Amino acid sequence: MHVDRWEQGSDFAYPEMSPAASGAPRATWVPAGASFWHSGRHALRALIRALVPKRVLFPSFYCQDVLDAADEPGIQVLAYADGPEDERLDMDALELRAGDLLVVTNNYGTRRASPVNAPDALRDGVTLVEDHTHDPLSDWARSSAADYAFASLRKWLPLPDGGMLWSPARRPGVEAPAFDPRAHAVSAASTLDRLTGMLLKQHYLAGEPVRKDDYRARAIAGESAIGRGDPAPMSPMSRALLDLLPAEAWREARAKNHQTFAASLGEPPHVRLITATRNGVAPYSAVLCFDNRESREAVRSALVKQNIYPAVLWPIDGARAPGIPEAHVDLARRVLCLHCDHRYGASDMERVARAVRTAVESI
């Protein structure tokens, strides 16, 4: 990264590939029998269309766009209480029925085990589906016994598109169709937009004469269209790139960066870090929880002025399913997610922590 173009956060640039990347494929962590889709939403939508559940239950603290995957005739979509600091689900409170599909998630990649005590604790006829987007390589993901699992790989790795679906319990799989540029024109167009944005950003960060507005426009256009329409496969380019990316090493970088940030941040007033640094855990991001929404917005504004671009995961004010506790709506208004992935090193995370402390202390 050119010294004059330093920034932290926001969308991935196209990955810098080391000479070692041209060697043997590295994606040995990919689960057996996995199928690859345009996005995590497409993977889930394909599964729901194959299983045709009567109801789909999503966590209350969750990306609302994912609920669109269950927008199918005759399917009721509900939310159940589950937040980022909860360890276990109250199975009795769920009142599950035969024909239900229960989605559980590893919010921010901090859970070490399923919030369901055991898959056999579910009622007969209930399908358990796990969302491992925030850490497909967690101990939980690798030891899962769920009926199905999926992950939006493009959120976790620098890929222009990509989702993965697999069955830890070895249930019948759902195969992705072969890529066809005509049949999958909508997904191909959004992938091209995202790829263009990633490549332009790579050149921008290197100090070349690329305007930030240009790569942002392509990234926004691609993101706004991704996940729409009928389930489509992962693009051939992203599938090939997946085999070259050092996912396990990059996961370790996340864990180290989060630990560095936590140590550098300390315990400033008005905010707490809700993603814990624990053995075996590689948080997706460093998640801050503020006393109120106004404090969060003040800190976010101060960080953006220093080219630090945090995310809000997720806004749930416009909830798309009944059953979301008001406490989770309020929590979503107060959280701020700081990127800690492989793009950064210790000095970057220390710089971000200093900026957060300074901004918080000025509230």
Rank of each mutant, 00 (worst) to 15 (best):
S35D: 00
R194D: 01
A240M: 14
R111F: 07
L122W: 09
R170D: 14
F36R: 01
A113W: 03
R171Y: 02
A321F: 06
L241I: 08
R26F: 00
I308E: 03
L159Q: 02
L303K: 07
R239M: 10
G99V: 10
G229E: 04
L128V: 04
A13Y: 04
Y215Q: 01
V66M: 14
M349G: 00
P269V: 11
V52H: 12
V103H: 04
G222R: 02
A178H: 12
L102E: 02
P73L: 07
A98Q: 11
A43Y: 01
L153R: 05
W250E: 12
V103T: 08
D230H: 10
K212N: 02
A21C: 11
A141W: 00
R228T: 11
H328L: 15
S285G: 14
H203D: 13
H42Y: 04
E16K: 11
S347H: 09
R272F: 06
N117I: 08
V77I: 15
A282Q: 02
G229L: 02
Y204P: 00
L205Y: 00
V299T: 06
S187V: 04
S10H: 13
V30Q: 11
E175P: 03
S10F: 10
P177I: 09
P209W: 14
A121P: 00
G99K: 08
H258A: 15
S235C: 12
H203T: 11
P168Y: 05
A206I: 02
T196F: 02
D341M: 06
Y309N: 07
I220Y: 00
T110D: 03
L157G: 03
A32L: 12
G74Q: 11
Q76N: 06
A255V: 05
N107L: 08
A332F: 05
S264V: 01
T191D: 05
Q306V: 04
P322H: 10
E223H: 11
A178T: 15
L336E: 00
Y284F: 15
V52M: 09
Y344C: 03
T28F: 08
A98T: 10
Y215W: 15
V104T: 15
A282N: 06
D100Q: 04
R182H: 10
M1G: 09
P269D: 12
P181H: 14
V271A: 15
Y215H: 13
D291S: 13
C63M: 06
T191E: 10
A221M: 07
Q202G: 01
Q76R: 14
E7H: 14
L44A: 09
I363Y: 04
T260E: 11
A353H: 02
A262K: 03
K155L: 09
I316T: 13
M1Y: 04
E252T: 13
V129W: 00
